[in-house]
Amino acid sequence: MPITDQERIELQRRANAVRKDIVDVTGWSGGAHIGGSLSMVDMLTTLYWKYMKVDPANPLWEDRDRFVLSKGHGGVGHAVVLAHKGYFPKEELKDFNHTGSNLGMHLDSHKAKGVDASTGSMGHGLCQAVGMAIGARVLDKPFHVYCVVGDGESNEGSIWEAAMSAAHYKLSNLTAFLDRNRMMIDGPTETVMRLEPLADKWTAFGWKVRVVDGHDYGQLVDAIDFALTYKEGPVMVLCNTIKGKGVDFMENDPAWHYGGLNTDMVAKAQKSLEKFDV
């Protein structure tokens, strides 16, 4: 269903609150993958607050929609979203990364409530998502599988093996999102290992591709609405995004792939995000 103005404002509000918490948690934790967490927040917000059928009080509910963060290093972003959604108290975020806590840089599905797959090594999540989508079909379950893939991650051969199999088995109950922030660790994706023409590649692998601005809720919603009605196979929502989105001194700088923040930096980052308050 198309997005209403009220919904848009609520998503924006939620996303900015999530971004602010990502900044705080990065500060408390000593270091986290902040750049790629900030770039995917609008996708996750749209999914968790508009589409996904989940029950935070019953995280293992069999018929829940599944979410796999294939770019598992976005753990800090995902953890904040899960806390906002009510899977666990926000207090737990204070212990992110700390010894003995339930939340580390790459989330563990046995420890963090709401995490459907342990990821962190690139190129595994989409394969697991394919398995879940096949499983839903075999078991005649109604759930949908959502998966967020990194653009750097798309260098991995296994991503394309997964892509091939999802198209082969016509997995229309699988929707993937590509966080096309154009940065990886060693620099821009097109300098380190060229990916373009990326939409053409996914199309050639048998997916329906929708290219959107990954920070525009209207476009995200249109693409997901399409994916949920398209019955011929899997859909890739290729989201053009900005790494470090919202924090001016981090945007598009690969140095902020991973990092720690001191008190001053946290304050500066929060100030930058205040501009997006609605």
Partner: peptide, 17 residues
């Protein structure tokens, strides 16, 4: 092969790393 971040040295990155 010069492999870094061996053992548990990548601490908080957890099991995958």
């Amino acid at each position: 092969v010069i492999a870094t971040h061996g053992g548990t040295s990548f601490g908080s990155a957890g099991t995958t790393h």
